[in-house]
Computed example of a mutant assay.
Amino acid sequence: MFGIPPEKLPLVLIVLVVPILPNLWAIWHIFQRDFATPQEKMAWLAGAVFIPVLGGLAYLFWGRKRGKKV
């Protein structure tokens, strides 16, 4: 597969998938919460979508406490 030796494939998949997980979690979490304003919710969502790894991590550290459970 793309010239990757089969024994290195699990490592390559981990390196490619693990950075995506905070973003997927952040997007899911943002949709499950209410924020002070709709603009704040959309700003966090835009950060997670358009700034992939950093946006998800920023939401994980600073944004998740700002939302109230629906």
Rank of each mutant, 00 (worst) to 15 (best):
A46R: 10
K65A: 08
A43H: 04
H29C: 02
N23W: 14
K8D: 14
F2A: 07
P52N: 05
H29G: 05
N23F: 09
V18D: 03
F50M: 07
N23E: 13
P38T: 08
K8V: 13
V18W: 14
L60H: 15
G67S: 00
H29T: 06
Q39F: 01
R66N: 02
I27H: 07
W44V: 12
E40I: 08
G67I: 11
I20A: 09
P52C: 09
L13V: 08
Q39P: 07
V70W: 15
D34Q: 09
G47S: 10
F2W: 12
L45R: 00
T37N: 13
I51P: 08
L45F: 04
G47R: 15
D34I: 01
I27T: 12
W62E: 06
Q39N: 00
V49R: 14
I20D: 04
F31G: 12
A48N: 12
L13R: 15
L24E: 05
P5S: 05
L9T: 05
K69T: 05
T37G: 03
D34C: 05
V70Y: 13
K69C: 04
L16Y: 03
T37W: 05
G56N: 13
F31C: 12
I51N: 01
L24N: 01
A48M: 10
V12Y: 09
P10A: 07
G47H: 02
K68N: 06
F35Q: 03
A46E: 01
A26E: 09
G67R: 07
Q32W: 10
L21H: 08
G63W: 02
L21R: 10
H29K: 06
P22F: 15
N23P: 04
W25V: 00
P19C: 08
T37I: 00
K41P: 12
E40V: 05
F31N: 13
P6V: 13
V49Y: 12
I51T: 03
P5Q: 02
A36R: 14
Q32E: 11
L13S: 00
A26H: 11
I51S: 02
P22R: 15
V53S: 04
L60Q: 15
P6H: 14
G47W: 14
G67A: 00
Y59G: 06
E7C: 03
G56Q: 10
V53A: 07
L21C: 02
P19V: 06
A36Y: 00
R66W: 06
N23G: 10
K69N: 12
W62I: 02
L45K: 11
G67T: 04
V17F: 14
F61E: 14
M42I: 04
F31K: 12
I27A: 06
D34E: 10
